[in-house]
Design a protein around this nucleic acid. Structure first.
Lengths: 273, 273
DNA sequence: CGAGCGTTTGACAGACCTCAATATTGGTGG
DNA sequence: CCACCAATATTGAGGTCTGTCAAACGCTCG
C-alpha cells in the first residue's frame, strides 16, 4: 500500500484538468469511463459528500499498480472514481483467478481484515483515481449513519449477486458461454449509466484478462473469440467490443432476460436515500 | 412461497420439544447442526430479539421444500435457524448450479427484488426452521438501526467472500481441488461454532449435490471421491465426512492457511455490537 | 418382492490444455 | 522513416481431463 496514502493525496474534486487523462497503454475513445468523467463525477459527488468529513482522500494510481496485495494487511476502503481495476486471487503455481472487475463507483478493500491480511490482490488495469478512507473510520461512519450502512450493504449485495452469476458461468457453461457471459456483463455495466448505446464499446482488457477471469487459457480464449466472430455473435479486438447479435448471445450466456441481472438494486433506493 | 407465511407460523422460541427433530432421509448424529440446537439457539436469540418487534416469525419447512423460486417474486428475508438449505440457479437445459449452501445463522432472500423476481431458487436440504421477516420491514428496521444494518452488511460480506472463493475453485482447480475445497469449506463452517472437533462429521449431502456445486457430473464426483479415498486424503460416504489428511487436503484445495477464510468477519464486531 | 434412488464401474467421445512456432501490434531508438 | 524489440495474438498438433452413455449394484421403502 506504501505511497497510496502519501503526500500526493488530493482533497479537491475529481476535475479533468487537475487529474489529466491517464497515459494509457493504448488510446481509448471518449466512450470509455476511463476518460469520460461524467460517470466518475456523479458517483464521486454523492460518496464524497458523505465521506469527506470522515477523512476520505482522492488518490491516483498508474496502470498496473497494485492497490493492495493478497496476504498483506490493508486498512483502507477504496471507491473507484475513474479507470478500471481488477481483483484476483493468486495461487501457489503462479496462476491467478480474476474474481471481479472493478468499474467506477465500485467499492474494494473489504476483502479481508487487519489481522489476517487481504484475501485477494487488487490491481489497476488502467490509470485510476480512487477515493480512499480508513476502514475503521468507514465502519464508524456507517455505524453512525444507517443510510451509509445500507448503501454499503447494497453495494456488497450487488457484488455477491455478481459473484454468484460468475459461479454459475464457471460451473455450468462452455468456453463460448463463459466469454459471452463476461463480455455481456461488462457491456451492461458500462452502458448502464450511459445514454448513447453505441454499437462499439471500448473495454481496456486483453485476452489474458479474459482468460484469467473465465478460467480458460489465453490460447483457448483466442479460439473462442474467433469462433464467436465467425458466427456473427460479437467482435472483440484490441479492446473494441461490438455485440453483433445480442439476443443469441444472451441465449448462449444462458441469461434469462426476465431475471434481474447483477446490476439491479436488491435494496430499494428508498431504504438508502 | 405459498404457505410459508401460513397459519403454521410460530412465534415461540426454537425449542426441541416444540420443533421435534426433522424426519430426515437418513439419520444424522448429534454433531450435525440439524439436530443440535446449541448453534440454532445462539443465533436465534440474538436475531430474534432484534427482529421480533418488526414482525419476524419462526417457520418450519420439510426437506426438499422450495423456500423461494427463481423468477418468482418473494418479499421476505429468511434467517436459517436449523437444518441445511441450498441456493441454486436453474438453466434452460434443466441443469442447475448450486451457488451456496446455507447453514444455521445464514441469511437468504436478498437474491432479487420484488419487481424482477428472485434470481435464484432456495431449497431445503433437510427439514429446516427459518426466521422470516418481510423484506421491506427488514430494510426499514436496518434504516433505523445502524447496528442491524452493519450486521446485515457483515453477513453479505461473508457471502461475497465465500462466493469469490467458490469462483476461484471453479475457475482454477481440477476436480480433486474443487471437491476438496467444498468439503473443507463445509467442514470449517460446521465446526466453527463447535468445540469437539470429532474426526467424523455428518453432512446431509449426496454426490449429486456435490456435483451441482462443483460443476462436475455425479459420475465424475464419484470417481473423484474414490480417488481421494484411496489416496488417504478424505472419506465421504453416506454423508459421513472424515478428513484423513487435512494438511495435504488444504494443499490440493490451494487454501493458503495464512489467508483469512470465508468464515472470518470482515467487519469487526465492535462496529456491529 | 419390486420400484426408485443413489452409487459404482467401464468404454468412448469431446472440450480444453500444453507445447511450439509464427504473425501482428505498439513502442523505442537510430 | 526504418529497424528493432517486447508484448500480444494466432494457428497447429497432440495429450489429458472430464462428460456422455450404458449397465449393474446396493439400499430404502412400500
Amino acid at each position: 500500500m506504501g505511497d497510496l496514502m502519501g503526500d500526493n493525496a488530493e482533497r479537491t474534486s475529481h476535475d479533468q484538468s487537475r487529474f489529466p487523462a491517464a497515459r494509457l497503454s493504448r488510446p481509448l475513445c471518449g466512450q470509455c469511463p476511463v476518460r469520460d468523467g461524467s460517470l466518475c463525477r456523479r458517483m464521486e459527488r454523492r460518496d464524497r459528500d458523505r465521506l469527506f468529513p470522515f477523512g476520505a482522500r482522492i488518490q491516483t494510481r498508474r496502470a498496473g499498480a497494485r492497490l493492495f496485495h493478497q496476504g498483506e494487511p490493508f486498512d483502507h476502503i477504496l471507491i473507484l472514481q475513474s479507470g478500471w481495476a481488477l481483483v484476483h486471487k493468486l495461487f501457489e503455481d503462479g496462476e491467478r483467478q480474476i474474481v471481479r472487475f472493478v468499474l467506477p463507483g465500485d467499492l474494494i478493500g473489504f476483502e479481508g481484515n487487519e489481522e489476517a491480511g487481504m484475501a485477494y490482490t487488487a490491481e489497476a488495469i488502467t490509470d485510476v483515481t480512487v477515493c480512499a478512507i480508513k476502514r475503521s473510520v468507514f465502519y464508524r461512519a456507517c455505524a453512525q449513519s444507517p443510510r451509509l450502512a445500507m448503501s454499503f450493504a447494497s453495494l456488497v449485495t450487488r457484488e455477491a449477486l455478481s459473484a454468484w452469476n460468475h459461479v454459475g458461468a464457471l460451473g455450468h457453461q462452455t468456453a463460448q458461454g463463459r466469454v459471452a457471459n463476461l463480455l455481456l456483463d461488462l457491456h451492461r455495466r458500462v452502458t448502464a449509466h450511459r445514454n448513447p448505446k453505441d454499437s462499439v464499446l471500448h473495454i481496456p482488457l486483453n485476452q489474458v484478462h479474459i482468460a484469467d477471469a473465465t478460467g480458460l487459457t489465453p490460447v483457448h480464449v483466442c479460439r473462442t473469440l474467433k469462433q464467436l466472430r465467425t458466427e456473427g455473435l460479437l467482435d472483440f479486438r484490441k479492446g473494441a467490443l461490438v455485440l453483433l447479435d445480442p439476443e443469441r448471445l444472451a441465449e448462449i450466456a444462458q441469461l434469462d432476460p426476465d431475471i434481474a441481472p447483477e446490476g439491479s438494486m436488491t435494496i430499494p433506493p428508498s431504504a438508502v436515500a
